[in-house]
């Protein structure tokens, strides 16, 4: 895992849940919530958990107000790019519109040896359900951010109804994207309650996540 991971993707693709799980599992120093799109289910809502785990949260300039929809972006978001001794995850809002906030760090995002710009994909989201639409969305994402995507995450799921076949179906589509664009599949995400059902050996690192951002009854 590179020092900085930036997660983008269609809204509802699972960026925040993956960000939080990765931050906890990989003992990341910073989680930078740059979601200016979504009013609910943002990683910033977990500020108490991060405090407990010693993860620094960078969010809106109005801190500890996860229920605000003011799109204020904190200047602290730049710290991980400057301080080379820390690790960080950047959690963006959905689609290219959510990702355009990255332009603010244009002068800092240069060294791709230490930065991964990852597109999270769930083929059960209707806007990213096939190879063409996914490639189109990546082209839009790159145009809007002026950054090159460096990897993909297969987070294909139907929440509680997910089967192993569903994840395999996702992998087949994402693999075709991966080959066309020459981008690695870095992770395949499996929700912990489904783990025992999985026998298939998926591409990339298997990332077992629990539902932290969304409530269990959802």
């Amino acid at each position: 895992m590179k020092r900085i991971t930036i997660l983008s993707g269609y809204y509802g693709s699972g960026k925040s849940e993956i960000s939080v799980n990765l931050a906890l599992q990989k003992h990341i120093d910073y989680i930078v919530d740059l979601d200016i799109i979504n009013p609910y289910f943002r990683s910033r809502a977990l500020h108490e958990l991060f405090k407990e785990k010693g993860i620094k949260l960078v969010e809106s300039t109005i801190e500890n107000m996860p229920n605000s929809d003011m799109p204020y972006i904190s200047r602290k978001g730049v710290y991980p790019f400057i301080d080379k001794s820390v690790t960080a995850i950047y959690d963006l809002g959905g689609t290219e519109n959510g990702a355009k906030v990255l332009i603010q760090y244009q002068d800092q995002i240069k060294d791709f040896d230490e930065i991964d710009f990852i597109c999270v994909l769930n083929v059960f989201r209707p806007e990213t359900s096939n190879k063409k639409d996914i490639i189109d969305s990546i082209i839009l994402l790159e145009a809007q951010t002026q950054l090159k995507v460096t990897g993909l995450i297969n987070n294909s799921n139907l929440i509680n109804e997910t089967t192993e076949e569903d994840i395999i179906h996702g992998e087949n589509i994402i693999k075709s994207v991966s080959e066309e664009l020459n981008l690695p599949i870095l992770y395949t995400v499996i929700e912990e309650s489904k783990k025992k059902l999985i026998k298939h050996n998926f591409l990339g690192e298997e990332l077992v996540i629990s539902r932290i951002v969304a409530r269990k009854w959802l």
Partner: peptide, 14 residues
């Protein structure tokens, strides 16, 4: 078959 949607989008599509 089923798709995974956000409520607001699903309402729009409906």
């Amino acid at each position: 078959s089923k798709v995974l949607m956000k409520g607001n989008e699903a309402m729009a599509l409906a």
